[in-house]
Computed example of a mutant assay.
Amino acid sequence: MARTNLSMSISADGYVAGPDQTEQNPIGVGGLDLHDWHIGPSRDHPVNRLVMSEMMDGMGATIMGRNMFGPIRGEWNGSDWQGWWGDTPPYHCPVFVLTHYAHDPIELNGGTTFHFVTDGIESAYAQAEAVAGGRDISIAGGASCARQAIKAGLVDEIDLQVSAVILGSGERLFDGFQPGLPKLELVRVLEAPGVAHLRYRVTRPGEDA
């Protein structure tokens, strides 16, 4: 059965990005350390390779926020920015980018086309579902996009890659939720050097945990 999966690297104190995000430091101070599990020396650990494969392989569509797509703010003003990932992004599927400012689609190599959605997360999800062909949909982040998807009831699973890193401040994934929401069931724990991979099933009203 197709699922909608949200996967994010997160610090031990709950931040998915550090403070002072800039074009030169897009994940904020210390934020890059959260991704050491897949870009650092342990990236070829079997558990980390499994988790990366689950995150990326075979997705029918991906949804992300504009902050994840790039550092440009406000009007695009003819910017030639095409994302952080070069001419062949790792998504290999249609990617729907939440933004307040219209932009023509950007088609790149390897099957990735960035589509820009100005009318909210529900619209982005409907478009993603229409092209996914029954395959899984990935919510890639950042934090604002992830929160919108969770609050809209669109997420089936949340995968958190919890690193032994304390950021102290920055952007939290679960800011702004009422106590006890979303209701989560821990269904898997995997371990690799310096990181715990936690998978939660999102339990919706009327479902048994």
Rank of each mutant, 00 (worst) to 15 (best):
L108K: 05
L50P: 02
H92P: 09
V95K: 12
L98T: 15
G111T: 08
A61L: 10
G70D: 04
H92Q: 13
M56D: 05
R43I: 04
P94H: 09
V51T: 08
T99S: 13
N77F: 14
E107F: 03
E75L: 00
P89Y: 07
L98P: 13
D104G: 12
D104L: 15
G65I: 15
R66Y: 05
C93E: 10
M56Y: 11
P90S: 11
W76N: 09
W85N: 01
W81L: 00
S79Q: 01
H45M: 09
Y91L: 10
T99H: 13
R49S: 07
G65F: 14
T99E: 12
D80P: 00
G86R: 01
V95N: 05
D87H: 05
D87A: 07
H92K: 14
R73S: 05
L108V: 04
H115S: 05
W81H: 00
M64I: 07
D87V: 06
W85M: 03
G60W: 13
G65K: 15
F114A: 08
G60C: 14
Y91C: 10
H103W: 12
W85P: 02
N77L: 15
G65H: 13
M55N: 03
H100C: 12
L98Y: 15
M55E: 01
A102V: 14
N109E: 07
Q82T: 04
E54T: 02
R73A: 02
G86F: 02
H115W: 09
M68Q: 06
A61W: 12
W76R: 10
W84S: 03
T99C: 15
H115L: 08
I63W: 11
W76E: 07
G65V: 14
D80R: 00
G78K: 05
V51E: 09
F114E: 07
G74C: 02
R43D: 01
E75N: 00
F96D: 09
W81S: 00
N109A: 09
M55R: 06
H100I: 13
F69I: 01
T99G: 11
T112F: 11
G78L: 02
L50W: 11
G83M: 02
V51F: 12
M68H: 09
A61I: 11
G60H: 14
W84V: 01
G60F: 14
A102P: 14
G74K: 01
I72L: 06
C93H: 13
P89G: 02
W85A: 03
G78E: 03
C93G: 06
D44W: 08
F114Y: 15
S79V: 01
P94W: 15
N109L: 08
V95W: 11
D57K: 07
C93I: 13
T99W: 15
M55A: 01
L108Y: 07
N48C: 02
W85T: 02
S53C: 15
D80T: 06
D44V: 08
P71Y: 06
E54W: 07
I72T: 04
I63T: 10
H45D: 05
